[in-house]
Design a protein around this nucleic acid. Sequence first.
DNA 1: AACCAGGACACAA
DNA 2: TTGTGTCATGGT
Length: 300
Amino acid sequence: MSSTLTASRDLFRTFPVRDFDLAATLDSGQAFRWQRVSSGWQGVVQCRWVGLCQKAGGIEASIVEPTTDWSWLEHYLQLGCRIGDVTASFPKDEPMRRAIEACPGLRLLRQEIWECLASFILSSTKQIVQIRQIIEKLCARIGRPVAVPTGVPPAFEFPTAADIANVSEVELRALGMGFRAPYLAATARLVASGGVNLEALPDMNLESARSILMQLPGVGRKIADCVLLFGAGHMRAFPVDVWVLRTLRELYFGARKRTMSEVVRFAESYFGPNAGYAQQYLFHAARVRAGKLATENHGD
DNA sequence: AACCAGGACACAA
DNA sequence: TTGTGTCATGGT
């Protein structure tokens, strides 16, 4: 029996957050496991099934086991983030102004670091749709099932590093990972054995955290920065992939030839304390322009 | 049906 | 330090 002095255990909660575009955020290539359904989005956060829905008053979340503690989801969605302050810290130039205008409400999530690391090891030279397919297979094959509402398709935890370390490389290749399989296997073994402590990354400075990640097999500068930005909360990390490289060249260098390292060096000093956030606006705006979103109408 | 994808790595020069 | 070939796989 519930007391008026204790919070009720609920299956639903509406977070009254403004300037948060759920679709843009969950389909911007930072997380790969969210599924669009008629009622909104379904995914798994910290081993719990979650349904999310954009409402007029904010974001409505539904779960399976009633709880009083929603801090895990508030943290994942970074509901404490003042997005206006973030965008206000971007460079006051025309490219950024247009990127902000093109993706109002785009946010950065704070994902679990291992899932983020493993996911981006699998991301190299893959289209986002394919990355999602591989990860879905991986979770269905190795991940433990989580409780879902009746009528909802089965959902799975993201496999732990130990889970993946205990699977043969041949079995990983069978999931369609190709040359990424040995990278994921080796990194999983290192993480599972305690050779690297991912949980220490958020409290380290950016450069130290980056150098630790880049020692892992299959992790270079770009993937390291994705993990730092999407999982470890380093808002200055600035992943440069082919999209961002092309976009920065067009927007800031015109026709003049610039190498990858020149563009990276420029980005490090130009975009400020929330450079990684600015990067996500540029990346997503470019993908919107190219019609690459899963939520788009592909019929024309 | 070629082309390319949120790269990393070994190796050459 | 910078440039090039290689690595698998499948969507568009």
